[in-house]
Amino acid sequence: MAEEQAKFGFTQFAENWNGRLAMLGFIIGLATELLTGQGILAQLGLM
């Protein structure tokens, strides 16, 4: 049985998930702008 290594820090595992979640957030942000017709700053009341 292989010994499991820690999944903390700048590991390939962490960077893959970081990239995936960043892409997901970007797509959700674009979809929200398209559906509401407002940018993110307008939605937050900053503009």
Rank of each mutant, 00 (worst) to 15 (best):
M1V: 04
M1C: 03
E3Y: 03
E3A: 12
E3P: 02
E3S: 06
Q5V: 12
Q5K: 14
A6G: 09
A6Q: 14
A6S: 14
K7E: 15
F8C: 09
F8V: 15
G9W: 09
F10T: 06
T11W: 04
Q12Y: 07
F13D: 15
F13E: 15
F13S: 14
F13M: 09
A14W: 09
E15G: 00
E15Q: 13
E15P: 01
N16A: 12
W17C: 04
N18E: 13
N18P: 00
N18V: 11
N18A: 15
G19C: 03
R20F: 12
L21V: 11
L21D: 11
A22K: 13
M23K: 13
M23F: 01
M23E: 03
L24K: 15
L24G: 05
G25R: 14
F26Y: 09
F26V: 06
I27T: 09
I28A: 08
G29R: 12
G29P: 02
G29F: 03
L30M: 14
A31Q: 05
A31F: 03
A31C: 12
A31Y: 01
T32L: 15
T32M: 14
T32E: 11
E33W: 02
L34M: 12
L34Q: 12
L34P: 00
L35T: 03
L35I: 11
T36E: 07
G37L: 05
G37V: 03
G37T: 03
Q38L: 11
Q38F: 04
G39R: 01
G39F: 01
I40S: 13
L41C: 06
Q43I: 10
L44D: 00
L44Y: 04
G45V: 07
L46G: 00
L46Y: 08
L46M: 11
L46E: 02
L46H: 01
L46N: 00
M47W: 04
M47Y: 02
